[in-house]
Design a binder for these strands. Sequence first.
DNA 1: GTGACAATAGTCAATATTGATTAATCAGCA
DNA 2: TGCTGATTAATCAATATTGACTATTGTCAC
Lengths: 170, 170
Amino acid sequence: MERILLLLGLLRQHATHGYELTAFVEGAMSACVDLKKPTAYFLLDKMAASGWVMVQETREGNRPPRKTYSLTTSGEAEFQRLLRINLAAFSLPKLSNDIGIAFVDAIDKAEALALLQTRREHLLTQMNQTQHAPQHAGSLQLLIEHQQYVLNSELAWLDTVILRMSQVAT
Amino acid sequence: MERILLLLGLLRQHATHGYELTAFVEGAMSACVDLKKPTAYFLLDKMAASGWVMVQETREGNRPPRKTYSLTTSGEAEFQRLLRINLAAFSLPKLSNDIGIAFVDAIDKAEALALLQTRREHLLTQMNQTQHAPQHAGSLQLLIEHQQYVLNSELAWLDTVILRMSQVAT
DNA sequence: GTGACAATAGTCAATATTGATTAATCAGCA
DNA sequence: TGCTGATTAATCAATATTGACTATTGTCAC
């Protein structure tokens, strides 16, 4: 559902073709959303079938022919509907990727601490990358700020875990 | 990959059947992991095919017959391997579910603020639920603590967004 | 002893997702 | 002109995921 909201929102800013859309999402937005090219095309098809977007074969300059997608009136309505649902509902991202911390005690304490240090460095690297990321227009920028905020608080949490682990008796 | 780590980790604590596994994951752990019953069975099959778990038809008491899964030696090895990878790598949960904030400015400010207030209440409800959740054993408890920590920082962030929005001129 | 209801255990058809690959066009150069 | 590699644009086969459903066993009132 969120992916459709994203696509509708982007097409709302300006009609465009699949390639530009997916390049933007997999490029500039790759840090905050997970939406691969084939999924995007799959969803665009669905959206077309639902009448939310219009497809048009176009040929700009000497580029290969493209399918250009543009929002219809009912697409705008659906966007407004989904946006309200999305803003009003809070749902925690499922932390399945952090699942390892549930099993740290399966590893010798010294090695576990070393692994967590590596983790910490990865986190710092990501913080750096995000800080040097290109600025986005309007409230898209909020996404980036949120991400930086989350990275900061993840770092703080990781540090308390590391601290606790190194203090507790083996 | 993380889901397999989770299943291996749980089976490592004690061998059990699909029903108990999925009931636990979809019940007590539902707040922090997203793994539905059919996916769990699908993965258990794969794990059996890879030789990481052994399947055994059992019949305890008068209950319907079950397939009991237990970790093999190579399953334990795989668990250790995946655990190290998971602990050492940090990856941000993709915030696709927060995507709406990227489009707040498509909505009239007053309504947007009202929606965000609703969002805030949902968040508070979740915090309450998590605080009254049953305690987990060992480092599984860390997952819960992490979740509470994340909820707290999400609340703080949401409040800054609301504050900023209500101050900025329309 | 049997019919209704709950609990237990799992499956399946439909849908979503992705890594790998294909297809069309262009720019430059021999 | 014809060939090579780069860019643009999209698709496909394989895999993962899930909502809805099925099937088995127990239990308890009647």
